[in-house]
Design a protein around this nucleic acid. Structure first.
Lengths: 312, 312
DNA sequence: ACATGTTGATGCCGTTTCGGCAACAGTTAT
DNA sequence: ATAACTGTTGCCGAAACGGCATCAACATGT
């Protein structure tokens, strides 16, 4: 099904790879063919689309505009394909997800497993990144669905849903803090703390709060893996922080205890956003999974906020 | 700027004209060329796109899906073009509007005139239709912006704004009703009434209310032109009904009086919706006009509701 | 400083695709 | 029945495309 001009596809490949020859390799054509199509495009648009650096190509402003158009075309072509396929009963395609680490513990594997159980012809691609990288991948058309911290998102993305989960401390069962029901930041800082590195969203949640306290925190450990931090906490190394989303596994892990964090009497929220490219209609199978994702996250939000009722 | 496969453009022309030979004439190519491209498309999609009737071609289900995709592609191409043009200072294009008759009296001419004064390179196409035809034209990609009665709109359209205006009676200055400040439907039905035909939105607003009354209305006039109805009222033929939007001209027309309608103590609202194709990003100049349109209608809504303050 | 590898662009040439002309079979209206 | 219309199909010239070899410009490594 190749009813779009080769120039479109070649341009797309060059943009992704950043090089004409690399694009030619991916497309299984001669580099001269690719080069010519790009030149022809530039002539028809009337303006250069790439800046020729010695080491490859970079998009110009006009190039970025065309890239946006081409992404819209190709993504909508995918949707059309899926529409036709679903008409004849076949229901297949690939859902590409970019998300932050909090999801990998139980939400995402549960959902994908359950979905695969029902629709076996749908494949998945999941890539774990930092929040800003998630949004960037989405903007570049490298993912269909993105889950990230709900910060300001670029206008070319649409926030499908916003779910909030409580941030809390994770400590070993024997830890002194484990005797309470909740903890304050000040209480935690009295013990060794396992800090998140800036790549993790938790860092951006806690840093402003810690900065408010005048105390100098005890020397601590820093890490960029939620899994690692949790395992460290389980070994009694210190206090780790994480979103309540990891609670699914925690409840099965007898070594650990989750304590919702209180700051000045009110909970500390971690806002999770589900994003999609705005200028786009999703294929049916992607839309279907998206709905399940939103529903599931809403369900977890409800469950967990019921388990730890809000104070204020 | 023709970087899309000819098949796309040919398909689009065939869909609009409903015939291969007619499309060929529009495209200035031989009909054989068009026929071949369509056949090639059908072969690549793996399914017929048109039903060949002896008198022309009709879209199949798959054809309609492709039509949607092609519309998305071509409309987004327009947007891309306008983006590039606005980058180099040029700001030109055509805004195509489909709307119901209520707008033609003052809102639309005022807006277009004012906009043309500032951006002379932007042209306009306006087509007056019934509400459902407006939505249909929008769905078919024959218009950029649609203004219609806010009924249930198809899912491929997006309601940009919703403004409500009071429905009222229009009578000659010498009419007995002109002595009051407002009127009820029962009061009106005591006089000869100029009814709207079903093609006009006013019909669908008033019919349910009239049906509620058990009285048999006096034999009356029916018409499908707001202008005609108003002129009839001016000549004392009877009571006409229209949206408060026509008030701009009314105030300049000393022969007529507008009386807001009351039904069971509450106003009768006419909901006006502004629509746009959902799967689409508008060109900059279209978006700009759309914003002005929404603002202007909002302004009129505010003004007129202030002039005739709500009762309940 | 020199050699090597990589980048994008170009001239040449065979292949593929496209479009125009004319003729065809089928349906509809007069 | 005639005439006007529909979409389709061979045939052929023109345009576009892709592959190969080659070039100049730049970066990297020795």
């Amino acid at each position: 099904m190749r009813f779009h001009s080769p120039a479109i596809q070649y341009f797309h490949a060059v943009r992704r790879t950043g090089s004409i020859r690399a694009a030619a390799r991916v497309l299984n054509v001669a580099s001269s063919a690719v080069s010519r199509q790009i030149l022809k495009l530039e002539q028809e648009v009337g303006s250069p689309l790439f800046e020729r650096n010695a080491r490859g190509l970079t998009l110009t402003t006009v190039g970025e505009m065309l890239a946006r158009h081409v992404m819209n075309v190709l993504q909508d072509l995918d949707r059309f394909r899926s529409d036709v396929a679903s008409l004849s009963g076949t229901w297949h395609g690939t859902v590409s997800i970019a998300c932050i680490e909090s999801l990998t513990e139980s939400v995402l594997p549960d959902l994908i497993a359950s979905h695969r159980g029902r629709a076996r012809r749908v494949s998945f691609t999941a890539e774990v990144k930092g929040s800003s990288d998630v949004l960037e991948a989405l903007s570049r058309g490298e993912a269909d669905i993105g889950i990230a911290m709900a910060l300001r998102h670029p206008p070319d993305l649409r926030q499908v849903a916003l779910k909030r989960f409580r941030l809390g401390a994770v400590v070993a069962r024997e830890h002194p803090l484990a005797r309470g029901k909740t903890v304050t930041l000040t209480q935690c800082l009295a013990f060794p703390v396992i800090h998140a590195l800036p790549e993790l969203s938790i860092y951006h949640l806690l840093q402003p709060l810690i900065a408010q306290l005048s105390e100098t925190p005890e020397p601590a450990i820093q890490a960029n893996s939620i899994d690692l931090m949790r395992e460290l906490a389980a070994r009694g190394v210190g206090v780790a922080f994480q979103t309540q989303l990891g609670i699914g596994r925690l409840s099965r892990d007898s070594r650990l205890v989750f304590l919702p964090l209180d700051n000045a009497g009110s909970p500390v929220w971690s806002d999770l956003g589900i994003y999609v490219r705005a200028e786009r209609t999703l294929p049916a199978y992607t839309e279907s999974f998206l709905q399940e994702l939103v529903r599931e996250l809403g369900e977890r939000e409800r469950q967990e906020n019921a388990a730890y009722p809000q104070i204020a």
